[in-house]
């Protein structure tokens, strides 16, 4: 989902940066506030960030001879809420832009928006809906993580299609093309991410300490 350095026209790059910035700032504030009020939340935030770090480094093979990586932001959104994920994703994307030439500084805003804002909020929304529908926890987590992952790549497709509309078929023509690139590759990876997220949540639930650290606090928030 990394749009490569320089691959968004200046106007688009600025606009996406402006769109992502408030989420990153709000996320950073939320992390700071939580850490002051309840230092135990630092464990959960650290775990969510570390999970994103690991998963977004896993270049996994997929269908049609292409590879891509999961994002891990859906699990984080479930564990610590979608807010902090914007700043955590931005840190990971900055690391990859500077040290891996994956993504870039000019596209950092657009990439943060897809991975750190849309993905986590979609995951959180799906999680809340599934919870309200009283689906089993494993189904809630699976759908949230998998659909959050797909939403990130759908957003990237839209961002590129907006910047590069097809000369004859316009935005939709381009969107179909970019979705063909990203979504087909991503479906198996989104399923893998969903399964792994379920495994992590179930492992965490077995730990009695987890309840007091604010992990899975999103669950409590929905229950209330």
């Amino acid at each position: 989902m990394h749009i490569m350095e320089g691959f968004l026209p200046l106007g688009h790059a600025v606009a996406w940066t402006a769109a992502a910035a408030p989420f990153v700032v709000a996320g950073a504030r939320q992390v700071g506030k939580q850490a002051r009020e309840n230092p135990e939340t630092k464990i959960g935030t650290g775990m969510a960030g570390a999970f994103v770090f690991v998963l977004s480094a896993l270049k996994l093979p997929s269908v049609a001879g292409s590879c891509s990586h999961p994002t891990g932001t859906g699990l984080g959104a479930i564990l610590v809420g979608p807010g902090p994920m914007a700043v955590l994703s931005c840190i990971v994307l900055l690391f990859q832009a500077l040290l891996l030439a994956h993504g870039g500084l000019t596209t950092l805003g657009a990439n943060t928006f897809s991975m750190g804002v849309v993905g986590p909020w979609v995951a959180f929304g799906v999680f809340c809906l599934c919870r309200r529908a009283r689906l089993p926890l494993a189904v809630q987590v699976f759908l949230a993580a998998a659909l959050g992952d797909l939403a990130t790549y759908l957003t990237t497709s839209c961002q590129l299609a907006l910047a590069f509309p097809d000369p004859t078929h316009g935005f939709l023509g381009s969107l179909a093309k970019f979705m063909g690139v990203f979504m087909v590759t991503q479906v198996p990876l989104a399923i893998a991410e969903g399964v792994l997220s379920v495994m992590v949540v179930q492992a965490l639930r077995r730990n009695p300490e987890v309840a007091s650290t604010g992990l899975l606090q999103a669950r409590a928030g929905v229950d209330a």
């Binding site: 989902m1 990394h2 509309p165």
Partner: peptide, 19 residues
């Protein structure tokens, strides 16, 4: 053995085709 191509690189190719 097939070389796997990153979807990011494929997107860059698609941009080159469209524009």
């Amino acid at each position: 053995a097939v070389e796997l191509k990153g979807s990011d690189d494929r997107a860059a190719e698609a941009v080159a085709e469209i524009a």
